[in-house]
Amino acid sequence: MTRFQEAICEKLLLSAAWTSGSIVVFIFAFMLFLGLPLLSGGHFFSLLTAHWAPQQGSYGILPMMAGSLFLALLGLLFSFPLSLGCACFISVLGPAKLRFLLRKVVELMTGIPTVIYGFVGLFLLVPLVRDIFGRGGLSLLSASLMLALLIAPTMILFFCDSFDRVPRSYLDAVDAMGGSKVQKLLYVMLPNSVHGIAAGITIALGRAVGDTLLALMLAGNAIHIPHSCLDSARTLTSHIGLVFSADFESLEFKAIFACGITLYLFTAVLVLVVRGINHRLRRPL
């Protein structure tokens, strides 16, 4: 490859990186621009803290923020142990053929449309939750369980990849010392995969906060701050979807820009928190 071709390649790749990076900034600027009337009118922070009561002229999005946060964290809480266990089985513990098969199944799961998960949740999980608990069919619990299933494949594949990146020489050393598979996993693979695990959690959490369809189909969409897993809840994303599909003129519609900005910042803060934890864990064994 000539120097000229190399320079062209470098410029092309640089422009691709700049484009994708600037789109993220551009989207935020766009949200700010559209939400400017709210910000300049001093309504933005009252929207964040107030409750939703359109009859009284209050369009606060606090319940939706609570709904998004609870749903995402609950989904992650259910999904993380499942994903970690599954990744350990696929990467180390399982028999070779089953490991291969399971990995392919998990890769396939990433391609299943969210609406399918929604249907399965609606027709199988919601009645089950209602039967077991006597209430709460369309609830945070149903939505978070399906959400856990939705985000699990991403986490599993991230975890598996981070296990695969543990240097072969470390694994050979443990094998040669007579370490069992579980010891190899606990003492060498997990401590050396902390960053990959954190990355998997970050991506999964972003997906959980940003998911709209499952929340819309399974969480019930009631506008109040949920107090239990069996309560119905509305997330920021489903709120945007519901209001957007209703009208374009009302004050309610204007409030969804606050939802958008909040959602954006919310995801950014969550990513930073996970990165902060990850940074703290960066110490020798």
């Binding site: 020489s169 470390y170 050979d172 050393a173 443990v174 040669a176 060498v188 050396n192 020798p284 064994l285």
Partner: peptide
Amino acid sequence: VFQAPNPLPMS
């Protein structure tokens, strides 16, 4: 003992 030294990332 392997060809390339392979200490683990610990003390």
